[in-house]
Amino acid sequence: MIPNSKSIELKYKTWVQIQTYLTKSDLVIVPIGAIEQHGMSCPLYTDALLAEYFALKVGFDNNVLVSPTIAVGDSLIHLNFPGTISLKPTTLITVIKDYINSLYIGGFRRFLVVNGHGDNYGCILAAFSELGNELSGMRYFVKDFWDFPSFREIMQTEFGDSNGGHADATDASILLAIDDTLVNKELLSNEFAKVSYWISRDLVNELYTKSGVINANQKLASAVIGDKLITEAVNGYSKLLNELTK
């Protein structure tokens, strides 16, 4: 997705190359996403793909290593939709802890976590809370890509209240900007839940969604808007990287 991204991807390096990198920097970018339904128009890999894309773009622009994506997240509520793969929150916390601890043992101390799935956020913070108690000298940011003020301003301006749920026009717009073959435009949906309270998985199709889209109008999506959103997310993450280097 990012030309020449192999130059900053940890998985393509040898341990000797990592050792050399660590003599100059102990900073690494960690993308975390999910494999879950995103309506009838967008791929199961959407959350992981977006987290990975932003991580690689920011890493390449700033010459910072990017670790392999933790692709599976907490997607329990979407398991009624075929293809969704989920970890329990307790499992995800353990996975993140083991993953980050491995990087820490290898010499990394500064972590920028690019999160692409909202339900992961609490698990990530819980994992880092425990890691922060167990490990010394660690610095980190955990940030959802949609949580930068300038990013949210574009979402509100372009989509208004028809955005911000699940599988929304924001996700679809960014996918269109990255590679429009990833989106089946003819199947973009507009669907809002019947209730506002949280429900158990057996009630998802009855009260939340038939298509998989929840509280969003995907039909407002466009690649032009996606490009604007990408710019704001990349700029936001780059500023966080600069903070971590201080």
Rank of each mutant, 00 (worst) to 15 (best):
F141K: 14
F141I: 14
F141T: 11
V142T: 14
V142F: 09
V142K: 10
K143C: 13
K143E: 15
K143V: 11
D144H: 15
F145V: 13
F145Q: 11
W146Q: 12
D147S: 15
D147L: 11
D147Q: 14
F148D: 07
F148H: 09
P149F: 11
P149M: 11
S150D: 15
F151Q: 04
F151G: 01
R152C: 08
R152W: 03
E153F: 10
I154R: 07
I154Y: 09
M155L: 15
M155D: 14
M155Y: 14
M155V: 15
Q156D: 15
T157W: 11
E158P: 09
E158W: 12
F159S: 03
F159L: 06
G160I: 01
G160Y: 03
G160K: 06
G160A: 10
G160T: 04
S162A: 13
S162Y: 13
N163L: 02
N163C: 12
G164Y: 05
H166Q: 08
A167C: 10
A169M: 08
A169E: 07
A169D: 10
T170D: 13
T170P: 07
T170G: 15
D171W: 12
D171R: 10
S173Y: 08
I174L: 08
L175R: 05
L176N: 07
A177N: 05
I178A: 10
D180P: 04
T181P: 02
T181Y: 05
L182N: 01
V183Y: 03
N184K: 11
N184I: 09
K185S: 01
K185C: 00
E186F: 05
E186M: 07
E186G: 08
E186K: 12
L187S: 10
L188S: 02
S189R: 06
N190M: 04
F192N: 02
F192W: 07
A193D: 04
K194Q: 09
V195G: 07
Y197P: 03
W198A: 14
W198T: 13
W198H: 12
I199L: 06
S200T: 13
L203Q: 07
L203P: 01
L203S: 10
N205M: 09
E206G: 03
E206Q: 05
L207R: 04
L207P: 05
L207S: 05
L207I: 04
T209W: 02
T209D: 02
T209M: 03
T209R: 01
K210V: 07
S211E: 05
G212L: 03
G212Q: 03
I214S: 11
I214Q: 09
N215G: 00
A216Q: 02
A216F: 04
N217V: 00
Q218C: 00
Q218V: 00
K219G: 00
S222R: 01
S222H: 05
S222M: 01
V224I: 13
V224A: 14
I225P: 01
G226I: 04
G226N: 06
D227R: 15
D227T: 13
K228P: 04
K228W: 01
K228H: 08
L229C: 04
I230K: 00
T231R: 14
E232M: 07
E232H: 06
A233H: 04
A233D: 01
V234R: 03
V234C: 03
N235G: 12
Y237M: 09
S238R: 13
L240W: 12
L240H: 12
N242K: 15
N242Y: 13
E243R: 15
